[in-house]
Design a binder for these strands. Structure first.
Length: 901
RNA sequence: GGGGAAUUAGCUCAGAUGGUAGAGCGCCGCUUUUGCAAGGCGGAGGCCGUCGGUUCGAAUCCGUCAUUCUCCA
């Protein structure tokens, strides 16, 4: 089935033989109202609807939550309001609505494996939502949701069902009253479906959901079928589809699981945007909507194949879904890597790449599809347009990397296959399959395909066993992490460290090795800048601060008590180590200059990928395809130093995110809407959003010096640099070292290089001459030795004590002897510092009768040495020289005996 | 955070069981050709990632660290 069915008719009854056709019949009933809407119109319409009802329209927060390490990706509209629900932040508005970018892949919610198999699972999706922060509650939330669906979107009322929590009589009454839904269309459910909580501890409450009846032909067919039907779940075919979830936050759940009412109640809702689109556009699959079709069409063009909606279309759907996730995530600062969320992105990309291979695309192609994603979503998320080329570059590089990994893996598979063929077996055991996957990154489905081609059977049970073992190992290890004191709730610390380095403060929180103050000059580790160190003290107590972290609104000082006992309420002096802070500030300000200089030298595609600022070094990671040429690096260094000499004033101001961006500030990701941002400017050279500490004017940096430039990951480079005294010391060290070198070489500083080059040449020449001389010397007598050699039967026997040069020359001597011997056996004996060094040589024409390695074992034993070797040559060492006579006496007999065999 | 693997010539990689470090491509010189592609001959280029251990002897076995790849969390 392909395309839309636009005309109703009797023949539709006939088409009802297939399930998808039936969906069309049903969907037709919806679109028969001639409501046609693009996804863009739907998104805008939703926001407009709530804007008219007093809601502040808030942009989606970035997919990559930089300040929340517990969260891999933004996965719900409420993410950016978490602080508000926790009571840690007071919003400047009471009503908000948004369309939020979300990714669910990896972690608890993981649909990755199911994407593409049907029309509903996605890694990336958008969530429409409206919120009340202590403002309106159940009645308005239900009324507006109902009105929006039935009036704005004109969904038929008799097709909608409501679910409520079994304890929530209020919600049921409201549904009956406001929406006029018959009681039979309202169902009650338990905690699993209709109670929502943010975490085990925190705000929570009952929720109510709106479901759409897809028609009696769907699902289990039982008369009692309804929303959240478990029979339908078993069939993987639900008759009722959840459209919207309205959460009423009214409790706080504490550590013991006890619920207490919140002082203010909130509303948090979420509606799946892709689902709504498919309903409105009359499609049976989300992928048939205008959100996905442009990407699928572009894929069709690349492959020359036609998309179909059944199982055969799976690769197309995987690609379309994954491209959305990748493009949006990379735009928001994500990056494929081998850890954390970067690893999730890498997996997504590789699945997409695999899907492409199934469609016959073996060369990188995904990067070209980013355009169709940007074109489709760009108007809703303008940041996509800004980073279009960046995203394509990142994806292309990652595709190429995957290609290399696959090739290596395929080689390894072939090695395994050859081994199997040699043993005549046709079963590839699970350990091997696991090894391919675990070590070489070959997806199991690919291994299966290759195995099939070679008529091999795969032991999947064994593979799964290995997989499970690996999971166990990781889990067992994970238990030991965690267990860090968490102050988060309730405590608030004011940071006064921009203005002062020393202040009186009161202890408000206390734990083993950790202290929270009501105000503090200590900078907490953030934005790449390391934490301040210093001391908290008063007359009877002192505490050495070694680390500082932000936990919620609290600033926690870590370290150890060196004197006295701290107690809550105690007043202390908080004193930051000003020397180290000064160095850190110089480095941080220099980092801003460096970024600006890099962009000036290399272009605006240079983006910060990470930074680290400590008292003695600064590190700046940025996106860049290839190594920065040394010339450019010098130019960048010179540019930074020029700005330092200009002594640009450092100006710090506060504004909103939008204003800052509009005036051209470099913004990182993770700033939340509604927060005032801190803008750091240095003359007209750089303007960045930054919470760090800075010098007053660039002149204070003193001197800037690049130490190294290196690659840290595909597409990412790192520059390390130093400033101020550190840079000065480094320069002095360099000069002193050069002076010492020139003293050793006894030439002027300017002649050092030519002198070293000449010396190296000379050294090499001498080495070569020496080697030649030694071989010549050792070999000079070889001819006479051979003439004097004894004979055993048809073979010569040469036994000789020689002066031992280095091992290499000794071997070369042996080589010469063996060549000139013609047919025979030679035993060379060298002396070295009370030890013996033996070498036994056998000409090739005798190796069938006598093995040097074997014989050496016996001969070496006579003098107490040990050794061995191969058939034509063997070496031994050790032993005592005084037993040499014994060896000389016995050796001919042993050789004769061997030859006789 | 934990597991597996890799690191050898400029590049891609061989180097069973410890015993004289190799190939292909690339590079340089000569030669053949009107010229190019190609061919022939010769050559340069290696602390076998790092530090330590075992051994008479380590590119090879064991451990440390570094870097890269990969899987799990």
């Amino acid at each position: 089935m392909k395309g839309d069915i636009r005309h109703p008719g009797d023949d539709l009854r006939y088409l009802c033989l297939s399930r998808t056709a039936c969906d069309f019949v049903f969907h037709f009933q919806l679109i028969a109202r001639e409501l046609s809407m693009t996804s863009g119109e739907l998104r805008r319409g939703f926001l407009d609807y709530f804007a008219k009802r007093g809601h502040r329209i808030v942009p989606s927060s970035p997919l990559i939550p930089h300040d929340d390490p517990t969260l891999l990706f933004a996965n719900a509209g409420m993410n950016q309001f978490k602080d508000i629900f926790l009571g840690l932040r007071v919003p400047e508005f009471r009503r908000a609505a948004s369309s939020q970018k979300c990714i669910r892949a990896g972690g608890k919610h993981n649909d990755l494996e199911d994407v593409g198999k049907d029309g509903t699972h996605h890694t990336f999706f958008e969530m429409l939502g409206n919120w009340s922060f202590g403002d309106y509650y159940k009645a308005e939330a239900i009324e507006w949701a109902w009105e929006y669906l039935t009036s704005e979107l004109q969904l038929p009322k008799d097709r909608l069902r409501a679910t409520v929590h079994h304890s929530d009589d209020e919600a049921e009454e409201l549904w009956a009253k406001i929406a006029g839904i018959p009681r039979s269309h309202i169902s009650r459910h338990g905690d699993k479906d209709n109670f929502w909580e943010m975490a085990e501890v925190g705000p929570c409450g009952p929720c109510t959901e709106i479901h759409l009846d897809m028609g009696a032909h769907r699902g289990c067919g039982r008369p009692d079928c309804g929303p959240n039907c478990r029979h339908c779940d078993e069939l993987h075919d639900a008759r009722f589809m959840e459209l919207w979830n309205l959460v009423f936050m009214q409790y706080y759940r504490d550590e013991n699981g006890v619920l207490t009412p919140l002082p203010e109640t909130h509303v948090d809702t979420g509606a799946g945007f892709e689902r709504l689109c498919s309903v409105i556009q009359g499609k049976s699959s989300n992928y048939d909507t205008d959100l996905f079709m442009p990407i699928i069409r572009a894929t069709e063009e690349k492959t020359g194949r036609e998309y179909v909606s059944g199982a055969e279309g799976t690769p197309f759907r995987i690609i379309a879904d994954h491209m959305r996730a990748l493009t949006l995530a990379i735009t928001d600062g994500g990056f494929p890597s081998n850890v954390g969320r970067g690893y999730v992105l890498r997996r997504i990309l590789r699945r997409a790449s695999r899907a492409g291979r199934q469609l016959g695309l073996r060369e990188p192609f995904l990067y070209e599809l980013t355009n169709s994603v940007v074109d489709t979503m760009g108007s809703a998320y303008p940041e996509l347009e800004e980073r279009r080329t960046h995203v394509a570059t990142v994806i292309k590089r990652e595709e190429e990397q995957f290609g290399r990994t696959l090739n290596r893996g395929i080689d390894q598979f072939e090695t395994f296959a050859a081994e199997l063929a040699a043993t005549g077996s046709s079963v590839l055991d699970g350990e091997k399959v696991f090894q391919l996957y675990d070590t070489y990154g070959v997806p199991v489905d690919l291994t299966a395909l290759m195995a099939e081609d070679m008529k091999l059977i795969i032991d999947f049970d064994g593979f799964n066993r290995c997989m499970e073992e690996q999971r166990e190992r990781s889990r067992a290890q994970a238990k030991f992490d965690r267990a860090v004191t968490n102050f988060g709730e309730g405590l608030v610390s004011e940071f006064v460290g921009y203005e002062t380095l020393s202040t009186e403060a009161q202890i408000t929180g206390l734990a083993e090795g950790a202290i929270v103050l009501d105000q503090t000059p200590f900078y907490a580790e953030s934005g790449g800048q390391v934490a301040d160190t210093g001391e908290l003290f008063n007359a009877e107590f002192s505490f050495e601060v070694t680390g500082v972290q932000k936990q919620g609104t609290a600033i926690v000082h870590f370290g150890k008590v060196t004197r006295g006992e701290p107690s809550i309420g105690m007043v202390v002096t908080a004193q930051v180590n000003s020397d180290l802070r000064g160095r850190t500030m110089r480095n941080h300000s220099a980092t801003h200059l460096l970024q600006a200089a890099l962009r000036a030298a290399l272009g605006p595609q240079v983006h910060q990928a990470g930074s680290y600022v400590s008292p003695d070094r600064l590190r700046f990671d940025f996106t860049c395809g290839e190594a920065v040429p040394p010339g450019v690096l010098r130019q960048v260094e010179a540019m930074v130093n020029a700005r330092i000499r200009e002594n640009l004033p450092v100006n710090i101001s506060h504004s909103t995110l939008d204003e800052a961006k509009a005036s051209g500030a470099i913004a990182l990701f993770g700033e939340k809407y509604g927060e005032t941002v801190r803008v750091v400017r240095m003359g007209n050279f750089t303007m960045e959003l930054c919470g760090g500490t800075h010098v007053d004017a660039t002149g204070q940096i003193g001197y800037f010096r690049i130490l190294s430039e290196s690659g840290i990951a595909a597409g990412t480079r790192r520059i390390e640099a130093a400033t101020g005294v550190t840079a000065e010391e480094l320069a002095r060290e360099d000069r002193d070292r050069l002076a010492r070198i020139s003293a050793i070489l006894k030439v002027g500083v300017e002649d050092v290089e030519t002198r070293i080059a000449a010396l190296l040449d000379r050294l090499k020449e001498i080495e070569r001459e020496l080697e030649k001389a030694q071989t010549a010397m050792a070999g000079a007598d070889v001819d006479s030795w051979i003439r004097e050699a004894g004979e055993i039967g048809d073979a010569r026997l040469l036994i000789r004590e020689v002066t031992l040069a280095d091992p290499k020359a000794f071997r070369a001597l042996g080589d010469t002897v063996r060549e000139k011997l013609g047919k025979g056996v030679a035993l060379l004996i060298g002396h070295d510092a009370g030890k013996l060094s033996l070498m036994l040589l056998v000409t090739d024409n005798l190796t069938s009768r006598i093995q040097a390695g074997k014989l050496m074992n016996e001969l070496a034993a006579i003098v107490g040495a040990r050794g061995g070797g191969r058939a034509h040559m063997a070496q031994a060492g050790g032993g005592s020289p005084e037993r040499l006579a014994d060896l000389l006496a016995k050796a001919p007999g042993v050789v004769a005996r061997e030859l006789g065999n």
